[in-house]
Design a protein around this nucleic acid. Structure first.
Lengths: 146, 146
DNA sequence: TATTGTTATACTCTATAACTATA
DNA sequence: TATAGTTATAGAGTATAACAATA
């Protein structure tokens, strides 16, 4: 049975990969949100648009699995994006499913948003050399069992 | 002005440190939540308890700054932890502030919860060698400008 | 004036369950 | 029977603003 006698809390937190990951993620996400502030979008919406860009005509369930959220959570995202004229729900492979597509305005909007996010990413990773950034991405990929 | 003509969405996402960080964080956090399931606690509560363990008598504002949330968000956390008898609000350095302390039951509970989280952390990082884990933590530390 | 704790309120994100129409 | 989309609802987590007590 474990005891806390010999375990310092800070040491325990510092040694947990999960906790450091959480801190780093909070910093990066906040920077990304700030970079997109006033643009009526969020990092999640940019992620969704990038997926649709690469998978034109994909259905909502596929997108929801990629985003790691439920189908219903995708609805609000798509509804606002569609109301902004950035995404369209066209006919899909089924009569049940929709085919998702970026509109021309959506592509133009995405180009700007992506630039902002990439700039934010460069800024927040400026503490690392290019080699270290590649190393970090490789380790994160490996962590996910890829 | 950027265009998307030559930018593949997946490539853009794969190259963003922030996105990979987000994916890895989601996996690690979900594993931690599952490890603590049924124990009436969360990773955030364990983090708070570890901080109080290392900083006995600290006030709520200090804890809120460490957790990167507002003072009011700390209230719900402390209220439930106090109702479980894991944390006590004693008199602090001021008549305004509370001094936070773990109860004996809180320390025992934390010892078990920390063991579960550390086991979850080991499991989720099993894809990495020990050297790679240390490397990852070092890179995450450096990313945060420490 | 500034700070600490507190409360009330609202907002975002998400999960669950149920429904419909298709398959 | 299974799946895709949808809707309503509830829960967690957080931010904001205001207030009382204290500094």
């Amino acid at each position: 049975m474990p005891t806390l006698d010999t375990i310092s809390g800070s040491r325990a937190l510092a040694g947990l990969v999960g906790f450091q990951l959480h801190l780093a993620n909070m910093r990066v996400m906040q920077a990304a949100r700030e970079a997109l502030a006033g643009r009526n979008t969020t990092p999640a919406k940019v992620t969704a648009m990038l997926f649709v860009l690469d998978n034109p005509g994909c259905d909502q369930t596929t997108l929801s699995r990629f985003m790691h959220v439920g189908r219903s959570a995708i609805m609000k995202l798509l509804n606002t994006m569609e109301s902004h004229g950035h995404v369209e729900r066209r006919s899909g492979r089924d009569l049940r499913s929709n085919g998702l597509h970026l509109t021309p305005q959506g592509e133009a909007f995405l180009a700007e948003a992506l630039e902002l996010i990439q700039e934010s990413d460069r800024h927040v990773t400026a503490q690392l050399t290019k080699a270290e950034q590649d190393q970090l991405i490789a380790l994160l990929h490996k962590l996910q069992g890829s």
